[in-house]
Write a protein that binds this DNA or RNA. Sequence first.
DNA 1: TTACTTTGCGCAATCGATAGGGCATTGAAG
DNA 2: CTTCAATGCCCTATCGATTGCGCAAAGTAA
Lengths: 340, 340
Amino acid sequence: MLRRNATIYDVSKESGSSPTTVASVLNGTWKQRRVAEKTAERVLAAAAKLGYRANLQARGLRTSKSRMIGMILPLHDNRYFSTLAECFEEEARARLLCPVVVSTRRDPAEEKRTVETLIAHSIDQLFIAGATSPNVLGEMCAQAGIAHINVDLPGTQCASVISDNYWGATQLTQYLAKSLPDADRVQDPDIYFIGGIAADNNTKQRSKAFKDVLRNLGFGKIGPEHINTCGYDALNAELAVKKLFETLGRAPTALFVNSTIAFEGIFRFLNTQSDDVVRQMNIGCYDWDPFLSHLHFPVAMVRQDAGAMIAKAFELLDSGEYVESKTIQVQPELFFPSEV
Amino acid sequence: MLRRNATIYDVSKESGSSPTTVASVLNGTWKQRRVAEKTAERVLAAAAKLGYRANLQARGLRTSKSRMIGMILPLHDNRYFSTLAECFEEEARARLLCPVVVSTRRDPAEEKRTVETLIAHSIDQLFIAGATSPNVLGEMCAQAGIAHINVDLPGTQCASVISDNYWGATQLTQYLAKSLPDADRVQDPDIYFIGGIAADNNTKQRSKAFKDVLRNLGFGKIGPEHINTCGYDALNAELAVKKLFETLGRAPTALFVNSTIAFEGIFRFLNTQSDDVVRQMNIGCYDWDPFLSHLHFPVAMVRQDAGAMIAKAFELLDSGEYVESKTIQVQPELFFPSEV
DNA sequence: TTACTTTGCGCAATCGATAGGGCATTGAAG
DNA sequence: CTTCAATGCCCTATCGATTGCGCAAAGTAA
């Protein structure tokens, strides 16, 4: 065995065939290059003997393909994104592509740098999931001729597959609103939305649904004091809910928590409150976590359908439709506590 | 702007310098190649104008480096592994390497294929985290001359950084054992270990600590009926605990749950039982999840210190110590419910 | 002026694979 | 025995960057 990796030239010497023949045998194009079966066998045997492994950088340089497919994510440590990553990897493997997942912490500069690097490595396709600046990234891909698609957060540069946030949030708000007193008795309902980033499309859609539902139910216009887009961050959410309790001087009737990350912070705060107080609240979380289904208080959840989103995204990439700037919405699942 | 990516030859033409000079300016080696400052500036301007981006496959082919660093993981959708991934990415970026994370579903064939691919892409270093066959993978890396290190599960082929599973499990078992009747009254204590894979080192260490603690406390020898290594899988754990309840005809006094994944299954089952029954149990989980800290019953947890493990692993890689076959153990954190 | 050093830059080979095109040899038809 | 197609294989250029080495011009010392 060689100290370095064997190349087609080593295999060529060992098998007595030319590098061309060796290459075509080893990359599967030997039939259309009319290599005799016997020769192919000799080459394969030699390759096996030397432990040949194709140098994919060389191949990639020549073909300007890499058989790698990238995905950028805001973060790993979250049920939704990690599920997206797993679904992505599964589909990628089914297509014999090597999945490469990188998180970019919702940092536009990091996103750019990462995409830059992935492009420079000639990845074949890119999934842009939850990026803060999808259009900038899409532009980069387009310029480099790399097929790409937005997932979770939409862009206008290419096709996007996202959750039907408006629908999901509508359902969740309607559920939460049941606990409110009748509309004709109150114009400023005791329900609050916490978490997410105001500029982010998902949060926009969800908070819009939140407002629309309440308005349609007759609660009047929902003001900014009902919607605290304090970020996707546990600590901020914790502080936000603490402040809400202080301002009200009591627990709110209903809470719409935007993401499990925000929920973590809310959860920490609620654990400082008495069980009875918390149990009387009606709490919903946009995003799902198995452990939220049976806390000491009920939580309604919306689970985004990561599998369906990834499948749809691959479909658009495979069919070439990804170039059209359109947005596909995938319906999430609802997990509501059984009525008491 | 060119329709394809600009190359050093394009920049060469644009700037009037040779490709050699252009390359050295663009990759930062121009000082040692004695390129005049003026020339460098001209080249940089031309590169910027053309939107030059180095083809990393070409560079990698020539240098047999890629500035990519890989990590393979069993899965993403788990707090522990996703935290490992995030810590890994952060450290990798600090070293100006592009982190590449791939999950391999505890499938030895998938692990081999993935490592094969990563090696073929000339990744510079590899983190082997939680692999079922670390030595096979280590051997492949060694043969390809790629620096590598085991994390979470140890191998003998190179250095390993793992949790101090024995210590953590000892602490957890001691905590759980407090709820058992005195040893002199019972030789077959009512405490059970569920989850994990018998062949896996972590499970071995944890179950050994479990047995040792109980034996040392005077509970006699702990037989196989106390240890159900039903895998890292929610469904199996659910079935296992169900069967345990049926066999006993009641709830066990204490439960050592090996991983949050197993805990998910156990949790599903416990939710079918009455709160009172569950609250009287004493439950511990090896692994941490924020939502487990305040379920409707108390759960003790062990949190593995992903940050410290990754930091240590990079230290060994950076210093070259990774070639020695040694195992570094990192102490996990304990999260025990405050005594009632 | 001569001799030698320093400065500035480019030639050409190389990394390992791919692909277009061409050259023998064999076989079949006439 | 020709003629021509089919078969089997290989030559060579190429992808885009890196790097050892060499050459010319400018600077310095004697």
